[in-house]
Nucleic acid binder design. Structure first.
Length: 616
DNA sequence: CCCGCGTGTCATACC
DNA sequence: GAGGTATGACACGCG
């Protein structure tokens, strides 16, 4: 059997290319694959092997045989297209117009349909990398919805392939659903393989490729490589070889195993269409299950898609976890760690945590320690928004020697109780208690009494010990000024001791307030982080569902494509191939082979073993 | 009266 | 070592 006997297969190859490219699926080959000179060389080699091919079932290893040959190169575009070989393909080749008509109508292909060849139209059908985008648009599959751009499909293809690669998909297990195509699928009815039609040759959609393609062919099984006729030079690539994406993802992927299960019904015929297996059924199932589990998880976690969408809308600008260091407790601690006794460092702490109200309030509080009275007043006003009311009482204490200040601050009436402990009765001397006569005097004395109650223990003690300066100065003056102040007065040892205790307690009180604010900030930041994480989680779940949905669509398209391509393949007698005996296989070099199913199964099993071996 | 909360204070560790 | 800070623990006052 000479090459003329494969012309039917060659036309089928053309159709396959046409279909694939009209689906805008970049299977990754460059134009050099279609170079005619290469074809010629391959043909020469093939002719040398022709004797072995002429006999039916000559290949003991059931290797691939070339389906398509004789490609010509378009003089303008450099694109290759199958050359018209005299005698044969006229009756079997499908012209581009026919393909378009058929595809756009998405009608079932007639049984044993004979398609007149129109080689000139095929120049469009075999695009190369340099093909203008517009042409690819024209090659869009009619299976695609109008809303899907070729770019989207390309993108989805790549996404699909990357996902498939990442998931180390089990190619064999994914094929079963091909036979569970929806009954209404028009493509499912396209199988026109006559039952019991003997196919007397191994047919390959592959055509010889050059250089890298030949190397890539080594990716196939040893059986294929060892085939005398199935050398790389005999195989026609159906797709460009320079698509790294698909080459990598489909490297040695056994489309036969992927698309057709071993238990395929051998009598594929018109009714076999609905039974076409889902080439990606396994993945589809997995994706569906994954999606379902995801939804369950989302429900369990209190996230549903609606809520997630609402969250997404509400926080759309949120890129995810809050990376603001001021929000994180650790950074907060670090900023606190930088806070020292100097006011400048306190202000730096303020700037680092100014993004959150709580943090800012805290840092303002941090500056309180060494602030002057006026500064303290301003800060305390700001503090009031956060509810650190105790600072008001401090302000009262600080200004107790100047009650007029208090009278100017009516909001201080709402200040909470003074938590400063009442002085022990023994500690109070007569100076602290207003004279009984003064109690009967006017509102001024009542006010003084009120202020008296507002005084802290230390203030009472200071008054009792006749300390000549305010507790505020005692507490907030820098050490040098504080010592200088002490040196100005002749103070007893008891007074000095009390002053130092007041200073120590006052500073510790502020430290305690800062500490509590810090603790509160930490809690708030943690709550905010939890919210951010929940938001991120909802978003990621939503994205994953979207990806799974897209993946499912791509699998369906791949399934349709496979069915469409396979259904159009015809042997030299114009009869379709039985899916039970043949399968399409995508090679690592971007070519597509029609190989016997048994070989495909073997390769599929080998594919399964590889990941396992890697694990070991 | 009990409870929770806010606060002041102390003790202690650390810088 | 003194001074300051941070923090846990405790007590107190108030609502």
């Amino acid at each position: 059997m000479g090459w003329e006997s494969h012309l039917t297969a060659a036309s089928a190859d053309i159709d396959l290319i046409d279909i694939l490219w009209r689906q805008d699926i970049d299977l990754g080959a460059g134009r050099e694959i279609f170079d005619y000179s290469h074809r010629q060389k391959e043909q020469d080699v093939d002719k040398e092997l022709a004797d072995g091919v002429e006999q039916e079932d000559t290949w003991p290893g059931e290797g691939a045989e070339v389906l398509a040959r004789n490609l010509l190169v378009d003089g303008e575009t450099g694109e290759s297209f199958p050359a018209q070989v005299p005698g044969g393909e006229d009756q079997t080749a499908l012209s581009l117009e026919e393909c378009l008509r058929l595809l756009e109508a998405t009608c079932p292909f007639g049984e044993n349909a004979e398609f007149p060849a129109d080689i000139s139209s095929l120049t469009e059908a075999v695009p190369s990398e340099s093909e203008p985008p517009g042409l690819q648009n024209n090659l869009l599959s009619p299976l695609l919805t109008g809303t899907e751009s070729p770019f989207d499909l390309e993108q989805q293809w790549q996404d699909l392939m990357s996902i498939m690669e990442m998931q180390a998909m089990e190619v064999n297990t994914s094929s079963e659903i091909l036979y569970n195509a929806p009954p209404g699928d028009p493509l499912s009815t396209n199988y026109s393989l006559a039952p019991n039609t003997p196919i007397n040759q191994n047919v390959s959609l592959h055509q010889a490729s050059l250089g890298g393609c030949s190397q890539d062919f080594s990716l196939f099984s040893p059986e294929v490589e060892s085939l005398p006729v199935a050398s790389s030079s005999t195989l026609l690539p159906l797709v460009p070889s320079n698509s790294t994406t698909l080459n990598s993802t489909f490297s040695s992927t056994n489309l036969a195993g992927l698309f057709f299960p071993p238990q395929l019904n051998g009598t594929a015929n018109d009714t076999a269409g609905p039974e076409l297996p889902d080439p990606l059924g396994g993945l589809l199932d997995e994706a569906m299950l994954d999606e379902i589990s995801l939804m369950d998880l989302a429900i369990e976690e209190g996230f549903n898609s609606v809520q997630a969408s609402q969250l997404e809308e509400e926080f759309d600008s949120d890129s995810g976890l809050s990376l603001d260091s001021s929000h994180s407790p650790s950074s907060l601690s670090s900023s606190e760690g930088s806070s020292s006794s100097s006011s400048s460092s306190s202000s730096s702490s303020s700037s680092s945590s100014a993004s959150s109200s709580a943090s800012s309030s805290f840092s303002e509080e941090g500056a309180v320690g060494y602030s002057s009275d006026s500064e303290t007043l301003d800060l305390e006003e700001a503090e009031g928004a956060v509810g650190y009311q105790p600072e008001y009482s401090k302000f009262c204490r600080m200004s107790y020697q100047d009650p007029s200040q208090l009278s100017c601050l009516p909001y201080l009436e709402h200040v909470g109780h003074n938590h400063t402990y009442n002085m022990a009765p023994s500690a109070l001397d007569s100076a602290d208690l207003p004279p009984p006569s003064s109690l009967k005097k006017g509102s001024k004395e009542k006010q003084a009494d009120f202020l008296d109650k507002q005084m802290s223990r230390d203030e009472h003690r200071a008054r009792a010990m006749k300390i000549p300066f305010t507790n505020d100065k005692i507490i907030n003056l820098p050490v040098e000024e504080f010592n200088e102040l002490l040196s100005k007065y002749q103070l007893s040892e008891a007074q000095l001791s009390l002053i130092r205790d007041i200073r120590r307690r006052g500073k510790n009180k502020m430290a305690a307030q800062n500490c509590r604010k810090r603790k509160l900030d930490t809690i708030l930041n943690l709550e905010r982080d939890v919210e951010d994480l929940q938001r991120d989680k909802a978003r990621l779940l939503r994205e994953k569902v979207e990806f799974l949905r897209s993946l499912r669509q791509m699998k369906q398209k791949v399934q349709s494509l496979y069915q469409e391509v396979f259904g159009r393949l015809r042997d030299e007698n114009g009869r379709p191939y039985s899916p039970s005996q043949y399968a399409l296989q995508y090679a690592g070099d971007g070519s597509v082979l029609l190989i016997p199913r048994t070989l495909a199964d073997q390769q599929a099993r080998r594919q399964e073993r590889k990941p396992k071996d890697r694990r070991k």
